[in-house]
Structure formats: C-alpha cells, structure tokens
Design a binder for these strands. Sequence first.
DNA 1: ACAAAAGTGTTACGGATACACCCATGT
DNA 2: ACATGGGTGTATCCGTAACACTTTTGT
Lengths: 230, 230
Amino acid sequence: MKFYEKHPKILLAVDSIIFGFNENERELKLLILKRNFEPAKGNWSLMGGFVAPEESIDGAAERIVKELTGLENVYMEQLFAFGGLTRDPGGRIVSVAYFSLIKLNDYDRELAKKHGAYWISLSELPDLIFDHNEMVTKALRKLRIRARTQPIGFELLPEKFTIPQLQGLYEAIYQTPFDKRNFRRKLLSMNLLEKLDEKEKETSKKGAFYYKFNQEKYEELLLKGFNFEI
Amino acid sequence: MKFYEKHPKILLAVDSIIFGFNENERELKLLILKRNFEPAKGNWSLMGGFVAPEESIDGAAERIVKELTGLENVYMEQLFAFGGLTRDPGGRIVSVAYFSLIKLNDYDRELAKKHGAYWISLSELPDLIFDHNEMVTKALRKLRIRARTQPIGFELLPEKFTIPQLQGLYEAIYQTPFDKRNFRRKLLSMNLLEKLDEKEKETSKKGAFYYKFNQEKYEELLLKGFNFEI
DNA sequence: ACAAAAGTGTTACGGATACACCCATGT
DNA sequence: ACATGGGTGTATCCGTAACACTTTTGT
C-alpha cells in the first residue's frame, strides 16, 4: 500500500562538519576536502553525500564519516537542515548537516588521503563551497553551547588525559584562556574524573597525572538531576 | 547545466508545532488537527505538508502555518529533521519540523475550522500520529531553552501586556511558579520594558499597568554584548 | 469593610572570579 | 642551579533565592 505517490520528491544530502583535536597541539581542527566532481570541482568543501532511499538520514551521516575516516560510533549530532532554493548551483538540494567529534590520532590516514582530505585549523579555514562556511559557523556555535553543559569534550580526547590537556581543549573550543586553578577546581568538584597513578611526562619535567572520565558515574548522577556545567 | 541527475530523490515534508497563548488564560496551547487523508486518517496530527520543488523548506513551513492560521511573519524556528526509515507508514518521508509562536487571538478561526484544527492544552495532549509526540516534546524543550535567553516570549503576547500576564506566560512555559518580586525586578532591570500610562482593569480592581517590549532598544543592547536572561 | 490582585525591599547564601606562590624534575 | 610546566588556597563580589506586608479600588 503506497500513499503520497503524486507528490514530488527532492534530492536530499547530508554534510559533515568533522571536528578533531590532538591533545598535544592546542587547536581545534576541521576535516575538509578538495571536491573531485562537478560543480565546483577542485574547491574546498565539507564531506557530504546523498541520502539513499533505504537509509535514514542519521545512517547517511554515519556512512559519510566512516567513508572518510574509517571511524564508527563517533559522537555525532544533527546540526540543521539547509533548504534554500539556490544553495547548490548544481540543482535543488536540501542538505542536513551533522557535526562529529573525533580524536585526531584515531582516523584512517589512507582513507582520508584517498578522498583528498586535510585537517585545517579553525583559524585558517579557507572559503568553502556553497553555504559550507555557514554550516561550520553554526556547528562551532552549537559545539560551544554543548560543551558547556554536556561532557562531550571527552570525545575529543583519548581515554587518559591530563587536566592541562583538558583545559587546552576547552581553551581551543572557546578561543579564550581559563584560570587553571578555577578550571581544575570546577572539573574535579563534579567527581566525574578518576585520577590514575600514571603521569604524562612528555610535556613537562614534573609530569601531570592522567585522569579518565567516568561515564557510568555521570549517567548515575544524571538520574539524580545533576547538570554538567563548565 | 544539470548535475546529480543519477541520484535518487526522496519525499520531503515539513511539520509545524504551533504554540499559542492567551494572556487571560494561564496555559500554553498547541494547534493540532484531525487528519483528513490516509494513512492514519481521523487521528490527531500536527499540521504538515510536502515541500515543493520550487520552494525552500522555510518557505514550506511558512506556507503551512499560513494555510492553517492565516498568519504571516510569525516567529518560527527550525526544530529538527526527522529522517528515520519507518517514521511514516505511508512511505519513506523525511520531515523537517518547525515550531511557531502565535498570539491566540490573532489567528483566522474560519481557516482553522476548515482544516479541523483545535487548540489543545499541553497538559491534555492526546496521542498524535507517527513521531509527532516526539516532535512536540522536542519543541517544548527547545522553546524552554530559547525563552530563557531570548526575548521570544513577547511573540506570544499582545503588544501591550502587564507584568503579571508576562509572568503567567513564563509560568505556563516552564510549568513552575516564580516569585513575583524577583520576576518583576529581573525583567525591569533589563530596561527593555516600557511602562505605559494605561492600566489593565479586567482582572483586578486595582488594575495593572501595561508595558510594551522595546525591540529597538533590545537590538541596540545586543550590539553592546548584552545577553537577555531570565 | 472587605476581598482580590498589584506592587514593593531587604537579607542570606553560594557560586564565580581574581589572584601569586611552591613543587617536582630533567638538563 | 635553573628553567619549565604542574599543582594549590583564599578573599571578594554579585546575582539568586527566600520571604511578608501595604496599596488600590470595585462591590
């Protein structure tokens, strides 16, 4: 039984804003690529693709990220549906944008290379095709809002991280320095970080203790009405 | 010059969560209708419609609201794109949901009647078709977040309103009482409300002064980095 | 005179901010 | 011994929350 058959269909795409972070650098990166098909071939672009009839839009977004990075089960959130009539000169396309957070050391370098993908610092972002710069701006704004009230920062860090690394991440996201005493106090006061015995000794002589985020504890606290807040 | 021609197209719809408020009652209302076509004919549903090839998704959302209420230029915000494979038993449809805020006295009663539409209190919301209840839940959550940090409450009130009416609106949105001294102080301290000489005398013998929201002043303050916050 | 809603001030508390020195260790 | 980044405590400020009585006026 089929309904709605007389209604016109539309090309539907997804585009992925893929954020990456490396705990040793201090910048948030974005994965973009040289587009290898028309229109706008050769220009910088986000990774995207069309939604197939037999896949959900979330599924399409996951497929796109996996094609480019080899990663599955990464943090992903729907950003916005872009549906202006003239956003893509190649035709009338509605695109649902998603943003993802990945650890910069995890992705598949071969796959990325094959697609002509590069990590770009946010501060050096070039002009992208169509409305992709607008997508990035919107994604960054949403990321900043999210990172304040949900513990998604940890998606960008390895399992073990130091407090200075965590602070570096937040400083990269918000592009502003934090007071290290206040930052540490605030984070530790939530009792969500587990201190390990091991120290990170690359970046300082004294060494900084590793911590890890306790997801189970977070979920437990959530049920009691706890709100993560930075 | 056409590109992308070999890619499959998809049915794209919009659904509208239309919130309404009447300053004399104390409840937030939702406009829903009895669906008059298959599938799920006769069940409660949000107002929706398909996106035409020659209209933007925002345009489709505006058209839908106008068809049902006769209103244009109402506050409207994109909520979320729902793209699960089985969300509509009538076929594979991706739907972009929007929510709108309207003043309950403004809409066209004839149009609404013709579509079989009714205003329902949030507390009495029935089962809606497909994922429409989920849409409403999500819209309500977003409305609550927005109303805290942007002056959108005024979209639900007439140009002239009293402080107790404004408080009643916020209490309806958040389903929780506020202290009237603190509420009044906070709102007035932003210097965005202009006190009029006139009083509203229906609901009390003493009468309450009317105020109006000063949009120009708000925009001016925004430029200086002001943040609306309740 | 009384009922019913409008309007008004002060205090206490807690979280946020600002700020400077000591510690550990590799060279 | 010194340079480098890690780690710590306290005082102040400000916004938030709690709370009860007076005013106006229609009946």
